[in-house]
Amino acid sequence: MIEKDELTGKIINACMEVHNELGNGFLEPVYQEALEEEFKIQGIPYVREKLLPVMYKGKQLKKEYYADFVCYDDIIVELKAVSVLSKPHKAQVLNYLNAANKEIGLLINFGETKLKWERLTKFKSQENR
């Protein structure tokens, strides 16, 4: 069985390929579409704009979240195209992890000259530098 570190590495490599090809400066939907194509090329299983229902005391709320991607049925991938990632971006991914009952999320920012990413879990985060 492939370890989650290896799976997140494959996703990040696909994101790097997209960033190398397009650079920064586009809006998020452009990167989302390009990344979907790259996932297909690299054979990374994904669901785009995956519905993440929010539960409260066992009852599903009307408000729903949509993750940009869920890869390998287990890893939430949230894309941004902003000048700098901020705490609310990280909080969004953590909320998605809780809503989907998943352990690992990737926050990817295409908005800087170098691809920035952060691997988040319910317990801690790891940024690239």
Rank of each mutant, 00 (worst) to 15 (best):
I41F: 15
I2H: 10
N101P: 07
Y66Q: 10
K62M: 03
A67P: 15
N98E: 13
L7A: 01
I11H: 08
E38K: 08
K59Y: 06
R48P: 11
G58T: 05
E17C: 02
A100L: 10
T121Y: 14
N98V: 04
Y46D: 11
C71H: 07
G111E: 12
N109T: 02
D73W: 09
T8Y: 13
L85N: 00
K40D: 12
A81G: 03
E103M: 12
L27F: 15
I2Q: 12
Y46P: 09
Y72F: 15
I108D: 04
E28Q: 10
S86W: 10
L97N: 12
L106A: 05
I11Y: 10
C15F: 06
L115T: 12
L107W: 11
T121N: 14
I76A: 02
A81R: 03
Y56P: 06
T8P: 03
M1V: 13
E127G: 03
K116L: 00
S125K: 11
K124I: 07
W117Q: 03
V84T: 11
M1Q: 08
L35R: 06
C15Q: 04
N95V: 00
E112R: 04
E78H: 10
L51T: 15
F26Q: 10
G58I: 01
I44G: 12
Q92L: 01
H89G: 00
I108M: 02
D73L: 04
Q42F: 04
N24L: 00
P29C: 00
I44L: 12
S86C: 05
S86E: 15
T113W: 05
I104W: 14
C15P: 04
L107C: 08
E21V: 00
G105K: 03
R119V: 02
R119H: 07
G9E: 07
N24P: 00
L97C: 08
G23W: 14
V47A: 13
G25A: 04
L94A: 13
L106H: 10
I2T: 05
Y65S: 00
K80H: 02
E28G: 00
T121G: 13
P88W: 15
L27R: 15
I76P: 00
P88G: 09
I44K: 12
L85V: 02
L61C: 07
K62T: 04
E37T: 06
K40Y: 11
L79H: 13
E3P: 04
A34N: 12
F26A: 08
F110R: 08
I41H: 13
G58D: 09
H19Y: 14
I11K: 07
S125E: 12
G9T: 07
Q32T: 08
E37Y: 14
T113Y: 10
I76V: 14
S86G: 05
V54Y: 15
I75Q: 08
I41A: 10
E38I: 02
N109F: 05
L85S: 01
H89L: 01
A91W: 14
K40H: 09
T121W: 13
E38P: 01
Y31W: 10
W117P: 01
R48G: 05
I75W: 12
L35W: 06
R119W: 09
Q32K: 08
W117K: 02
Q42W: 07
L51Q: 15
L52V: 14
Q60W: 06
Y31L: 03
L79T: 08
N128C: 03
N109R: 03
L27N: 13
V18M: 14
L35G: 07
N20Y: 11
N109C: 02
K116Y: 10
G111V: 06
E17D: 14
